[in-house]
Nucleic acid binder design. Structure first.
Ligand SMILES: [Mn+2]
Ligand SMILES: [Mn+2]
Ligand SMILES: [Zn+2]
Ligand SMILES: [Zn+2]
Lengths: 135, 135
DNA sequence: TTTTTACTTTAGAATTATTATAAACTAGAA
DNA sequence: TTCTAGTTTATAATAATTCTAAAGTAAAAA
């Protein structure tokens, strides 16, 4: 992902390219594999990787703007913190409760043979499969 | 569910049958269909149904004791509040984002044909299917 | 280039859900 | 009935997140 693409992500999220936002965008989007994170973990990573200072509110605001623009998704994990996901495709997860780690499962790796029909007046938006792991 | 069964639920959770606990247990377990709730919604229901007063801490403590004893389960729902479930069997859910309502899906109504194998050293504990609804 | 404007960062306050505390109360044993 | 361990409760504390408003900055206007 080039600098111009980073700027595109910011613009399409309605965000001016400030120092903080560019650092956050680079950290989140200049990678090959999926990154699952909480605001707290992102803050720690940013503190290590960059010299720039980040107010917590800036991280929250930026992450939410990316989510709203569709550049990040949210994953439901048991617990109090919100988890975000750089993988915005329709996909599933393994969840390791011991390590609180999420692992992506591509949609093609799960085939559902039978599923109930939606309640009256409703339609199915999407199906999420969550596989809990143990040792 | 008879009075004796309610007392059994309390005893097996290590709880003395106090006025508050009996009311909570009756409200949660004297029903046919599944009840999905947050501590806040349970508090509101109890306020309507009974004359007894409940400190929030008592509701939290009692619900957690029931969960620990296996009489309640927890469901992961997007959002900040913890959802509990009187259905303790292995089952799945529809989730209506408009109304924040959960609907049970019996395990037999979902058949999964293909699923990835667990990462090295790990085993699959259980598989949860979450079907998001739209209008 | 300067000036101006609107947007942004930030520290700290506020809010929300939950958990902890410790004093007053009570079920059940003795 | 008395005693004891367990319970309820109001309130304080904590944790995650959101809000606020003052000081700072990017980009448009002059
Ligand atoms: Mn969650
Ligand atoms: Mn949740
Ligand atoms: Zn993912
Ligand atoms: Zn359920």
């Amino acid at each position: 992902m080039k600098k111009e693409d980073i700027l595109k992500k910011l613009r399409s999220s309605g965000l001016r390219p400030t120092k903080q936002r560019v650092e956050i965008a680079k950290f989140l989007f200049e990678r090959d594999k999926t990154f699952h994170f909480t605001v707290e973990s992102l803050e720690n990573h940013l503190a290590k990787k960059t010299t720039c200072k980040f107010a917590l509110a800036t991280i929250y605001n930026t992450v939410h703007a990316f989510k709203k623009a569709g550049h990040l998704s949210e994953v439901d994990v048991r617990g109090k913190k919100t988890y975000f996901d750089t993988n915005i495709t329709d996909h599933h997860h393994f969840y390791d409760n011991e390590t609180s780690e999420l692992i992506d499962i591509d949609a093609s790796e799960v085939v559902i043979q039978k599923i109930p029909k939606a309640p009256n007046g409703k339609k199915i938006k999407n199906v999420e499969v969550f596989i809990n792991l143990k040792n």
